[in-house]
């Protein structure tokens, strides 16, 4: 049995116990503002806008993505063109824009925490051509330490920090936006 074998080998090989350090929260002097979050997110290729500047969420989505007709969203405020409860994951391949509520934003890296419960289908934020995350403005924290203190990573079966549109630099280090996942990310602050 390899498990017993491996554990025995570890017990014979492991060093004397070392203490586990306490991780501080590293609170910066500046509060985790919308401005810092917005500028860091922009550097990673995300677009950050405020819903109130568009007279509401639905208008914001339609204004930013005027040509993309099919929208998938679990949000009641926006008309969904596909019934997420009925669809299979593969059915979502034709979705132009996914609009998904998000739980938390991180100012230091522009990442946004999204869980399975928010997406209905885990694949939705990845398979849609464009992704819109809707984030309450008061849910922005400073850094990843604060973020992990506020979320519970095993609350649902799957959760993800999304820090921009899908990208790659695998051909000669040239940055290309839109590798396998969404080609653009818009974060709408509410």
């Amino acid at each position: 049995m390899s498990k017993a074998h491996i554990l025995k080998a570890i017990q014979a090989a492991k060093p004397v116990p070392c203490p586990l350090p306490v991780v501080p929260v590293f609170e910066a002097e500046t509060p985790p503002t919308r401005e810092i979050f917005g500028s860091v997110a922009a550097q990673s290729g995300s677009r950050v806008v405020r819903a109130e500047d568009f007279v509401g969420l639905a208008t914001a989505v339609r204004t930013i993505y005027p040509k993309d007709i099919s929208i998938a969203t679990p949000l009641r405020a926006i008309q969904s063109d596909i019934d997420l409860q009925q669809a299979s994951p593969a059915d979502l391949n034709g979705v132009d824009v996914a609009v998904i509520p998000a739980q938390l934003g991180v100012a230091e890296n522009g990442a946004v925490w999204v869980t399975e419960a928010d997406c209905v289908h885990r694949v939705l934020p990845f398979i849609a051509q464009h992704l819109v995350l809707v984030l309450p403005e008061d849910r922005i924290v400073r850094n990843m330490h604060e973020a992990y203190a506020q979320i519970k990573i095993d609350d649902t079966g799957f959760g993800v920090f999304i820090a921009g549109p899908s990208k790659t630099a695998d051909i000669e280090q040239s940055l290309v936006i839109g590798a396998q996942g969404a080609r653009s990310l818009t974060i709408i602050l509410i």
């Binding site: 991780v23 990845f126 990573i153 820090a163």
Partner: peptide
């Protein structure tokens, strides 16, 4: 889980100079 705070801050910055990998997925 709290230790992820330390390692996610280090990983992408060390690897490519990004503040974070675009997707940090937690499968349970």
């Amino acid at each position: 889980a709290e230790h992820l705070g330390v390692f996610t801050r280090l990983l992408a910055r060390s690897a490519t100079g990004q503040p974070s990998t675009i997707f940090t997925s937690h499968h349970h």
